[in-house]
């Protein structure tokens, strides 16, 4: 997975595309940790192009959420596709993570409470 993060209003947007599975979860985690190390604290994971996630992929999301909770940062998962939403729900992630229907809604959520 080639991850090209962008920034809008001080919020770092990480688009995840295709499949997030055991073969590329480490790449995605490293990309996030690199941005965190650069001092980024507000993130949107844009999942509109993510067709599939496995438990290895969920691990990346959970690591990010835990790190940002500890550092008083913020993250919102936006635009989940069907399989990804169902896996989040099976895992209880829909109740512990902040979610938004679109990237715009996610941006509004973050800026409303900034």
């Amino acid at each position: 997975m080639n991850i090209q993060a962008t920034e809008k209003n001080g919020v770092t947007i990480i688009p995840l595309e295709g499949r997030l599975d055991g073969s590329n979860a480490t790449v995605a985690e490293q990309a996030f940790l690199q941005l965190l190390a650069e001092g980024k604290q507000q993130f949107i994971f844009d999942l509109s192009g993510l067709q599939y996630i496995s438990s290895a992929g969920l691990r990346v999301i959970l690591v990010a959420a835990k790190k940002l909770r500890a550092s008083k940062g913020r993250m919102v998962c936006a635009s989940l596709t069907e399989q990804v939403y169902d896996v989040f729900e099976m895992s209880g992630f829909t109740t512990i993570l902040e979610m938004a229907a679109t990237r715009e809604e996610a941006l509004e959520k973050i800026s409303a409470s900034a």
Binding site: A56, K66, R69
Partner: peptide, 22 residues
Amino acid sequence: ALLDLELEDRPIGGLGIFFVKR
């Protein structure tokens, strides 16, 4: 029991076989 834990307390991992069963 883990599914209802708060973010801070959730262990990382342990879901894979649960998905298979579901």
